[in-house]
Design a protein around this nucleic acid. Structure first.
Length: 288
DNA sequence: CTGTGTTCCTGTTCGC
DNA sequence: TGCGAACAGGAACACA
């Protein structure tokens, strides 16, 4: 659920509380995330300063004064909340009276409390020495950042060259382009007027050079991500921003979760199909 | 190597 | 109203 725009929104929400601040204490209330939080995790963080908060694909990266980087992923249901001077073990933020699923709490020296909540526990936290970050398996095979200058039609076409799989599957593959998930793949394909069922290789010629479809797709991806970040991300279900407010990009969805509703363009019915076990929403008449 | 299917998990929604 | 089934989805992993 949290895709690139949501993760970027979360990063921006955490920055005021964490950047330049020292981690005074770490409480791990449940170590069972996607991978167990390792023994010694807390001690390796306590007393260290967060020099900067960055993002790569759907990962948030906290640069620490110790030379470690804290690599965090929200999984599908992960969220952060920022509070002030919370009482340990009582409650951790004003926006919730419950500590259910509050798995990790960072008490910052500036009085802020940063709480990681994740009901489904698909999220993860891992400490990696900065010098080894480029070798980190979680990050090493990620494709280009879609909002970076280096991501263009030529690069996307090359990544899709010879691919027999669908455009939906290709864009969902983090090795092709990093940070898209089910929602923004659907929305980008709609904006580019390309069918999710189209073979991925058809955005390139036989030499891997981009055609007009590749150009349209790159522009659509960048536009939809920028629009979503501007709106503070989407908040399907209960996904909140770090300050507790709700993003509102879901009100701008053209096709996602709109089965049977009219296409904004041709007014035909939006269709839902299943690809790779996941729902795909698209307009069969506009998207070819 | 490539492409596809399975699995982890729990809150929400839906049909009876 | 209550209850079980279906569904949601990021990404590692297994497998053909």
């Amino acid at each position: 659920m949290p895709e690139l725009p949501e993760v970027e929104t979360v990063r921006r929400g955490l920055a005021p509380a964490m950047e330049g601040a020292r981690i005074a204490k770490v409480e791990v209330r449940d170590r069972r995330l996607r991978w167990p939080i390792v023994k010694g995790f807390e001690k390796r963080l306590e007393g260290k300063t967060v020099d900067g908060l960055g993002r790569r694909a759907k990962y948030i990266l906290a640069d620490l004064s110790s030379g470690d980087v804290l690599v965090m992923h929200l999984g599908m249901s992960g969220s952060f909340r920022v509070g002030k001077d919370a009482k340990p073990g009582v409650y951790y933020h004003e926006t919730s009276k419950s500590t259910a699923h509050d798995h990790v709490v960072f008490h910052m020296s500036n009085g802020s409390t940063v709480t990681f909540n994740d009901p489904r526990r698909f999220g993860s936290m891992k400490l990696v020495p900065r010098a080894k970050l480029d070798k980190e398996p979680l990050l090493a095979s990620l494709g280009p950042e879609p909002l970076g200058n280096e991501f263009d039609a030529a690069m996307l076409a090359r990544a899709c060259q010879g691919k027999k799989t669908s455009l939906k599957a290709a864009l969902s593959d983090q090795r092709v382009v990093a940070g898209l998930g089910n929602i923004y793949v659907c929305e980008a394909l709609y904006r580019a007027r390309l069918s999710p069922k189209r073979q991925a290789s058809t955005i390139a010629d036989r030499n891997g050079n981009p055609n007009a479809r590749a150009g349209a797709l790159v522009e659509a991806i960048k536009a939809v991500l920028n629009d979503a970040i501007k709106a503070g991300g989407s908040s399907l279900r209960d996904h909140r921003q770090a300050d507790g407010s709700l993003g509102d990009f879901q009100h701008h969805f053209s096709v996602y979760d709109r089965e049977g509703k009219p296409c904004p363009d041709c007014k035909g019915k939006i269709k839902r199909i299943v690809q790779g076990g996941r729902s795909t929403f698209y307009c069969p008449s506009c998207q070819t």
